[in-house]
Nucleic acid binder design. Structure first.
Length: 436
DNA sequence: CCTCAAGGTCAAT
DNA sequence: ATTGACCTTGAGG
């Protein structure tokens, strides 16, 4: 085969330009492919101006007659059926598929932020994507802020929440700080959740020192009925979480109840967010019992009709809430690579700061002491890889979106009750009903 | 990791 | 308004 024939092998079957592959089942260049796609999606009808329907289609003159170009596309073997129907403009594109996430976790996180008001990619997210890609392959000296950001997610300085624990433990003093007690308790909670909600051999349930209760294989689409049944269990875990702090039992009974009440709210908001991040599949929002709901609009996992609550009621109440959780809490946490210890500290700060106004004058100094201690430990244990003050500040900045979301959470549940949509656990209702 | 073939974007026309 | 280079995505290897 001579050179001429070899070149011809890779010609566009429509216009004889260099083909870029198979498009809609025909070997063609990207220009003819784009032309064909547009013609089909927009349902365009052309007429040959010459009237003979046999215009020469060659890449220098391929735009002279659309009718003949389209006809030649069909002759070359392009299939109209291979053009996918035009996406509904108000239907958001799924950015969080597994393969998409695998390719670029940081990008996916950023896209959650832009999902609601900006369905398409902004120039800035494209820029950051490009710079992240180039960073991971070459790793030059970080010079700009953008570079510094990218360095945080590079393999060298990336510390996964789980890897981080042993180092942290070795730092713990003989008398454990509140934060250390909460970290230990959080890991026990993970173990308890595993035991209660995973169907696995006992050996793999016990003793695991992991901070995440579930693996990708454990999680299943959420059944609201099952979740309702598990609510008391979650409340019990929260009660135990509080009791991990010796100071808790020194509070008056009213203060203990007030604290528990607020913690039920805040933990119900925060825990699934962090479990979701640990599982790492952004198309699945994973709840405390290992049930997940899909974050994709066109996937019904966890949203199906149930006897107690219809799909549309679920969507009405929980979809906006889910969006807020993903945007205001999950996305920022992913972006800053929040470690397990930092999450536990944040959870503590939210729990105690958010309760301050409900606590008696006698109890406030106790809470204040716990808060100060957690802040101290958090600041001391921010990794040296970061600008300590900046990272500490960024973690504190998470507080207000969390409080906002919690407020909405309470409001939505008032709505649930008002419409009598489904029977919530009576204990949870007692916690949510009284003063916000 | 990678490639392939979809869809989307937008400066140039 | 149309074109086409260039981009990301998702499936599959």
């Amino acid at each position: 085969m001579d050179v001429k024939d070899q070149l011809k092998q890779y010609q566009c079957k429509v216009c004889s330009a260099h083909a870029t592959g198979f498009h809609f089942d025909a070997q063609s260049c990207s220009a003819c492919a784009a032309f064909f796609r547009r013609t089909v999606t927009l349902n365009k009808k052309y007429r040959c101006q010459i009237g003979k329907n046999d215009c020469l289609i060659i890449y220098t003159e391929r735009n002279l007659c659309r009718a003949c170009r389209f006809q030649k596309c069909l002759q070359a073997g392009m299939k109209k059926e291979s053009v996918q129907p035009k996406k509904n403009t108000n239907q958001l594109r799924a950015y969080y598929t597994n393969s998409g996430l695998k390719r670029n976790k940081r990008f996916a996180a950023a896209s959650i932020l832009t999902q609601i008001d900006r369905p398409s990619l902004s120039t800035t997210s494209l820029e950051s994507l490009t710079s992240v890609n180039s960073m991971t392959s070459t790793t030059p000296e970080p010079t700009t802020d953008e570079d510094m950001l990218s360095t945080l997610s590079s393999p060298r300085s990336f510390v996964s929440p789980i890897d981080h624990i042993p180092m942290y433990r070795s730092l713990s003093s003989p008398i454990d700080s509140p934060l250390q007690l909460l970290i230990d308790e959080e890991m026990r909670i993970a173990e308890r959740r595993r035991i209660m909600f995973c169907e696995r051999p006992v050996g793999s349930l016990l003793g695991a020192s992991k901070s995440c209760p579930y693996t990708k294989d454990d999680i299943k689409p959420l059944v609201f009925r099952n979740f309702r049944k598990s609510i008391r269990t979650h409340i019990l875990l929260i009660y135990e979480w509080l009791r991990a702090l010796p100071d808790y039992s020194t509070l008056s009974m009213n203060d203990q109840i007030a604290l528990l009440r607020k913690c039920v709210l805040y933990h119900t908001v925060l825990d699934p967010c962090y479990i979701t991040i640990q599982i790492g599949e952004m198309d699945k929002f994973v709840m405390q019992n290992g049930g997940y709901v899909s974050t994709l609009e066109d996937c019904d996992d966890g949203w199906k009709d149930e006897k107690e609550i219809s799909r549309s009621s679920k969507k009405l109440i929980y979809w906006p809430l889910l969006n807020q959780l993903m945007t205001a809490i999950v996305a920022p946490m992913i972006q800053m690579n929040l470690t397990f210890e930092e999450f536990v500290a944040l959870k503590g700060l939210v729990s105690f700061q958010g309760t301050m106004c409900d606590i008696s004058d006698a109890g406030r100094p106790v809470l204040k002491r716990i808060l100060d201690s957690i802040c101290q430990s958090l600041y001391n244990n921010v990794s040296e890889d970061y600008d300590k003050a900046e990272r500490f500040g960024n973690i504190l900045l998470m507080l207000s979106p969390i409080f906002d979301t919690a407020l909405n959470f309470v409001e939505s549940h008032h709505q649930v009750q008002f419409f009598d949509l489904w029977q919530l656990d009576s204990l949870l209702l007692q916690f949510l009903k009284n003063k916000v």
